[in-house]
Amino acid sequence: MPTTATDYSDVTGSEASLRRFLHGLPGVDQVGAEARAAALGTRSIKTTAKAQALDLAIRMVDLTTLEGQDTHGKVRALASKAMRPDPADPTCPAVAAVCVYPDMVATVKQTLGSSGVNVAAVATAFPSGRAALDIKLADTRDAVEAGADEIDMVIDRGAFLSGHYLRVFEEIVAVREACARPGGDDAHLKVIFETGELQTLDNVRRVSWLAMMAGAHFIKTSTGKVQPAATLPVTLVMLEAVRDFREATGQMVGVKPAGGIRTAKDAIKYLVMVNEVAGPDWLDPAWFRFGASTLLNELLMQRTKMTTGRYSGPDYFTLD
């Protein structure tokens, strides 16, 4: 994948030109965006469409644990669940990735083996991002060397909110470079905005473009540590951004809402939005992910209901 910075080098060459570009993007009317998101949420997805959506949603889950109390035992259990979410049903697909802190990457990698499930690591002084660049880069390299397939970085929200767009841009570029491996098997970079702190939808559109121009493979809403985390209107604006970016450059960027998506019904609303806003090309774990922990069991319960016609309680699904 070429570095997109070259396509927009005239824009990203200086603080002034970057600011002019970002502030020149069309505004987002919040009331209108919320109304559109709510309208898409009324789609009725039933029978075959629901079965298809549930399996796709499971395949899109980044099964996540990001706690101070995480242990090697805990993440091993999570990794096992990622590979076989429903031990009772071998037709149930695996999730996309397991998302952990960098020090757990090696353990997860070992458990996942050649299952095809990726290891994602949060890095760059997650979740606040309040550290020197050197430390953020070291954090990233540490995870990459341990075998992370994907890096979920956080942007410097303080820099963004104070208008230092170029600093945010350069940091993303530097982290992307730190994702490189000598063999060329680079880790993919997801850029977390923490939209709950950026607050306005105008900011969401601007930061989306900024990250895409800096070479993000994925743009991600939240760390899960700040409320509100992912919302439908925020995801709507990000899906519009990746759609417009492909129109402008030919390059696809993925989208990952994370945090706060707990029910199968909610997950399906997101898939409808992906389908009708960005388009069906994005309906693939390579281009859309859910950052979630409890969502998976909700999806599994709905899936079992679809396949057996019966509801079974939470005790029939593993807690890991």
């Binding site: 789609r43 009725s44 039933k46 469409a49 796709l56 069906p280 693939d284």
Partner: peptide, 9 residues
């Protein structure tokens, strides 16, 4: 992927 909405009358 093609996501076809089943009839929901």
């Amino acid at each position: 992927m093609d996501f076809t909405y089943a009839p929901a009358p």
